Every structure is written in structure tokens, then in C-alpha cells.
Computed example of a mutant assay.
Amino acid sequence: MTAAQADLPTDLQAKYLKMPEGLRLDSPAVADGAAIWRIARDSKVLDLNSSYSYLLWCRDFAATSVVARGADGEPAGFITGYIRPERPDTLVVWQVAVDHGQRGRGLAGALLDGLTSKVAAERGLARVETTITPGNTASERLFTSYARRHGAQVEREVLFDAGLFPDGGHEPEVLYRIGPIGPLDF
């Protein structure tokens, strides 16, 4: 257990144990940046950021991000997120990725439940936002099932039209606003 987990109430620690067998939820550390970058790269779906950005993310946004660790301590999946500065009750989920060998076990949903439970316990949480490109069925299912589990509404609108991306060929990013989120009981 990490120091971050030890600081959480005992009931939340127990909820974190509801991960797929052999995995545990943890806060990312800078040393996880390279593994998180590799998982993102190997997903073949995510926009891959620089390896440097993942190191910074693990340092500066560890409180609003999570990793799933295998028995060897290595990340098997992750979610990066941040709190919107102008909406301190809103968690923006930046990226979600699960290692190929861990897919199909419900890990992404467990990570999302664990992260939102962690953020809610530490600072309160009313909404979750994320963007999803059209046709990313796995992400659509992940976030709509999360909303159903928590009795929350989902609002969708195009946040960034394809023409805004300077590199061309990028699909629009559709904003999913999920909330209000009720008590996070898992």
C-alpha cells in the first residue's frame, strides 16, 4: 500500500480492493511514467503524448490519476485526470488505457470507479467530463455504464470540431458531461 492509499479512509481502501483478481489500485509515481506511456502507445487508440508529458502527469496530477498494478508492481492500466480550474467539483478524465493482456476483465470500469471514489473522498465531486471521438465504442460504453451505475445523466456536445486540429485527420472530440454524481457507494 502506498502513502496515498494509507491516507484514505479504511472503507475506501476496502473498495479499492474490488479490482480484478491480482490487481490493485494505486496512485501513479514518476517511475510509472514510462510504463504508462507504453500502455498508451500500445493502445493504438489514444493520442500519444510525449514520454515527458507522462512523467509530468505522474508528478503533478497523481492525486487525480490512478494506476492498476499487477503482482509485480508494474502498471497494467491507468487513468489520467485533472480538476477543471474553473469548476473545482469536476474531474476531467484525460486518458484511460488498459494493457492488452488485462482487457476484458472490467479493469477500466474498476479504475474509473476507484478514481472517482478517491477524488470524491479527498475534495468532493459532482461531475465527470471526458471527450470521446465518434466510433470509440469502448469509451462510449465505459462512460455511459459509469453514468448508469451512479444514476447520473450524460450530456454530449462537440467540444472540438475536427477543423480545429492543426495536424489534420483528427476526428471531432465529443464532450461527455456526466452528473450530478450521487454518493459513490461501490
Rank of each mutant, 00 (worst) to 15 (best):
G114S: 04
S145C: 10
P88D: 14
L142G: 02
F143H: 10
A138G: 07
H100K: 12
L142F: 02
L142Y: 02
G135F: 09
A126F: 04
Q153H: 14
G124N: 03
S139D: 04
V92A: 13
P134G: 12
T90C: 07
D161P: 09
Y82I: 06
Q153S: 09
Y146N: 12
R84I: 12
A162L: 14
A121S: 10
I83M: 12
R141L: 11
R127E: 14
V128P: 05
R123M: 12
D161Y: 11
R123Y: 03
N136S: 13
T116M: 11
P85Q: 15
F160I: 11
L142A: 02
R149A: 15
V154R: 08
I79L: 12
E74K: 11
S139L: 02
S117H: 10
A108K: 02
L125Y: 05
K118Y: 13
I79M: 07
S139W: 03
E86T: 15
A110M: 00
Q153I: 06
R105P: 00
T90F: 12
R148Q: 15
R141S: 13
D89V: 06
K118R: 13
R103E: 00
V158E: 10
L159A: 11
G151D: 14
R123N: 03
V119C: 08
L125Q: 08
G163A: 07
E74W: 11
E155P: 05
V119P: 00
T80D: 01
H150C: 09
G163W: 13
V128K: 06
R87C: 07
V154F: 01
G77H: 04
A110I: 01
A76E: 13
D89G: 02
I132T: 07
R87M: 15
R105Y: 00
A110T: 00
L107C: 00
E155G: 13
F143E: 06
T80G: 10
Q102R: 00
F160N: 02
Q95H: 02
A97L: 08
G106C: 00
A162R: 09
A126I: 00
Q102V: 01
L125F: 03
A147I: 00
R148A: 14
T130C: 15
Q95M: 08
Q153F: 06
R156C: 12
I132Q: 05
G73I: 09
A121R: 10
T131Q: 15
A76G: 05
E140F: 05
V154P: 01
L91G: 05
A121H: 09
T137A: 14
L91D: 10
L112I: 05
V119E: 09
T116R: 14
R105L: 00
R103V: 00
W94Y: 07
L142I: 01
L112P: 04
G73C: 06
T137Q: 12
I79H: 02
P85I: 15
F143C: 08
S117A: 15
D161A: 14
I132K: 12
A110Q: 01
L111H: 03
L107A: 01
S117N: 06
G151A: 11
